[in-house]
Design a protein around this nucleic acid. Structure first.
Lengths: 124, 124
DNA sequence: TCCATACTTGAACATATGTTTATATATACC
DNA sequence: GGTATATATAAACATATGTTCAAGTATGGA
């Protein structure tokens, strides 16, 4: 790094303070498209709720029905159903009907791999 | 899966509806300790904000100072500073002072690996 | 010592979020 | 058909969250 003083740069009609112009340019180029960044943020946000995360972790061991997940998490069926809908919208889980019950499971292997990677990170 | 009818089980003084008792038991055994689950949720929650995520992704390319990150994300220095503090508390980033400026960078390799794994997940 | 720069911090405020409650749907069984 | 079970959904509410604004700290230079 060389620059020592910030410069005011004209951007989108307003002045922006910036020190390392080239570094910022590079970061902008390397940045994923904004839609992708948004989807990634949504993914993390969904996993950032303890109950939803508990559900995902539990499903690593195989499919479970709604009321079992409710019993596991210690919350109402309704709360779990809301959580599952969100996870399903993000393609983190899928379900299968058997009679009156819906069995939920992780949508694909990537999800459990992601969880495994994160748990490993926790253990430094 | 065999069970077809739910049973009311006494738990912690209240009745819980549950179908597959053994499956729930197994999920409970496999569950990480609650403190760890909480930390993991906090980690995801922190990464679930578009601006904080943008910062983390940008830092994959090397250290950056606060005002450059502000310019990149298009928010105020203050907002970035708040974001960075949170990321620092979670040991996702660290900083180094050089004169008046603080240069932030990813705390260790695990962080960029985690981001890489997630981006890969997005591309199915 | 005084001022400018780079960044941090705390309070305030508007928005987002998760859970509850009540109602609705879908399937099974009689 | 009628009732019970399993789950879904919508509105409402209380809490959590992120940004802004204003003031504070730290470093560097005149």
């Amino acid at each position: 790094m060389v620059a020592k003083k910030s410069k005011l740069i004209e951007e989108d009609g307003c002045q922006v303070k910036m020190v390392h112009l080239n570094r910022v340019r590079q970061a902008r180029e390397d940045e994923p498209p904004s839609a992708e960044l948004g989807r990634l943020a949504d993914l993390y946000k969904a996993m950032g709720d303890p109950n939803r995360l508990r559900i995902l972790l539990a499903l690593r061991g195989g499919e479970m029905c709604v009321c079992d997940l409710a019993a596991l998490a210690g919350v109402s069926d309704s709360a779990v159903s809301h959580a599952l809908r969100r996870l399903k919208d993000l393609a983190l889980v899928k379900n299968r009907r058997d009679g009156q019950m819906l069995y939920y499971s992780l949508d694909d292997h990537h999800v459990s791999q992601l969880l495994a990677a994160s748990l490993e990170h926790l253990h430094h």
